[in-house]
Every structure is written in structure tokens, then in C-alpha cells.
Design a protein around this nucleic acid. Structure first.
Lengths: 141, 141
DNA sequence: AGTATTATTGAAATCGCTTTTCAATAAGGG
DNA sequence: CCCTTATTGAAAAGCGATTTCAATAATACT
């Protein structure tokens, strides 16, 4: 199932006249193996386990490429740390964030989206993207 | 109308055993005169016009006090800059952010809030606060 | 295959904003 | 009018994101 993502990345690399490198391959593989919402630093630590020679900078830059290619999305939950989440095959979603255990849950609600869209329109606004984060306590906490 | 805010701040200062200073008075006055969503730096520049001797640090620390006293809220729109907004007399609201002119609009929709709350509950979540930001193009742009 | 070109890499430096440190100053209680 | 202690402001430190730069390696072209 990860094959499709590699193909997308390959095409992106070629379209942009960039180059294939083992580092990029490793980083993409680690990212795909990962649960959602990793920071660059968390990812760097995971990548090091597979190849200790890969530097933080390369991880960081590769994630920017993945963002540009549409494979990952960047999101920030107010703690000053940018996190990356899987985007391929994931529709738009909101986030429930447990302030106790730190767990992120993705949720989708088409009714909510529709009402939001109406509200926005009634303000003469044309919405391009939005971000809803709900902080609270999850079922287990 | 701003009188009430000064009173709240006075009470906060006294309850905490802190001290009244001319700097704090000036900073609060400037903040209240301000449109919503100012960064510490923007506020510092405004404060300097009234009293060039006041330092950035004092502005920054006073804003933290205003936050603690409930007079202002802190919010961050993903550009890495913390902004302060009026909170006294302002009910919860969401933000429409124009990506062309940078204007922030506050909106409230009770229907939206209700649906959100239902959605959250259906996930066994207890919500404490939430943040909805909608990025797009405003009527004038 | 060999070589020239140029993207990529990784360490270190830098950036931008937030937060803390510290010595000097000033608020306010006695 | 002191004395205690919070406050101030400049400068430093923190901290994550981003850039720089010399060395390296991936591709295109012989």
C-alpha cells in the first residue's frame, strides 16, 4: 500500500528535476511507517535507527519536499512545534487533542463542514482551508 | 467603557500581591485602544509612542499578566507569532483570516458550536476549548 | 566507463520570536 | 523615611525552524 506513495514521490522528484537519494528513500519509508503527527525531530530520531548517518537537516528538508508533493501535511497545535501528518488517502479532518495523554484523534463530520461553509459564505468570505482543533479529555483519560 | 477592564486588572494585581506601575497602566491602556490581534512586538511599538522608556520585556510580561487576569487571550495563527486579543466582554468566537489582506474577522455561530459539541461527545471526548480558523479571501479582496 | 555538472548532504551557523537572567530601580507597607 | 521585595530594561539564553557552505554524490553527456 505504501507503493503508491513512493510512486507519487518519484514522479514529484522527476517533475521538479530533483534527484533520487537513499536518504530520501529512507526518510519517506520511515514517515510512512509512522503514526500520524510526528515532528521533524521525532522523525529524525526514528530515521537515525535505520541510518545513523542521516542528519536532521536532511530529514527536515525531505519533509518539506513531501509537503510540496502532497504526501504530507504540516500542522501546528499551538505548542510551537510543527508536525507532519499523512495526507495521501486522507480526507480533510479535524483534530481532537487530549490534554492529558497528548493523543491526537482525527475526526470528520460532513454536517459540521456544511454548516461551517454556510457560515463562512454568509460573511462574504471564500474559504480555502480551515483548521479545527478541539482540546479536551479523551475517553481513556 | 474601558474603566471596567482597569478595575479588573487592579483587582488582579492586588489579589496576587503585585504592584501598580505606570508602565502597566500605559500598556493596558494601549492594548485596550488597539484593534484585536496584536503581537507583542506590534504592541511594543505602539507603547513606545506613549512612553519610549518602556522596554519590550515589560510589554511582553504585562501581556502575560493580562492573559492571566482574563483580560486578553493568546492565539497563534500558524505563523509562529503569538497574538493577543481582547477577551473581556467577548464571547467565544472563531476566526476568518484573509490570506490576501491579512484581516482577521471574528465570527460566532451557535449552531456550529452545537454540532461540534455533539460530534465531540460521540467520540467519548470531553471538550474544554477549541479553536477554529478558516483561511480564505474576504469580501473586499 | 569517465567526466562534468549540479543537486544534495550534514554540521554548524543563523534567524525570529519567546522567555529568562540580573543588577539597578521603584512601589508601597511599616 | 526606610526596608523589603516586586518591577524594570538590557542583554543573554532558549528553542524550533531555516539557511549557509564546503564536501559529496547523482545524473547527463561524452
Amino acid at each position: 500500500m505504501a507503493r503508491k506513495e513512493f510512486q507519487i514521490f518519484d514522479e514529484f522528484i522527476e517533475k521538479k528535476g530533483l534527484r533520487h537519494t537513499p536518504q530520501r528513500g529512507t526518510i519517506l519509508a520511515v514517515f510512512l511507517d509512522t503514526e500520524k503527527h510526528v515532528s521533524a525531530d521525532e522523525l529524525y530520531k526514528l530515521v537515525r535507527k535505520k541510518d545513523p548517518a542521516i542528519g536532521y537537516t536532511t530529514v527536515y528538508r525531505t519533509m518539506k519536499l513531501l509537503s510540496a508533493s502532497g504526501l504530507c501535511g504540516e500542522t501546528e497545535f499551538g505548542d510551537g512545534v510543527l508536525r507532519f501528518e499523512h495526507k495521501y488517502g486522507h480526507e480533510h479532518h479535524d483534530h481532537l487533542i487530549c490534554i492529558k495523554c497528548g493523543k491526537f484523534t482525527e475526526v470528520t463530520d460532513s454536517g459540521l463542514e456544511r454548516i461551517q461553509e454556510n457560515m463562512v459564505k454568509s460573511h462574504g468570505f471564500k474559504s480555502l482551508k480551515h483548521k479545527l482543533e478541539i482540546f479536551g479529555i479523551c475517553r481513556n483519560c
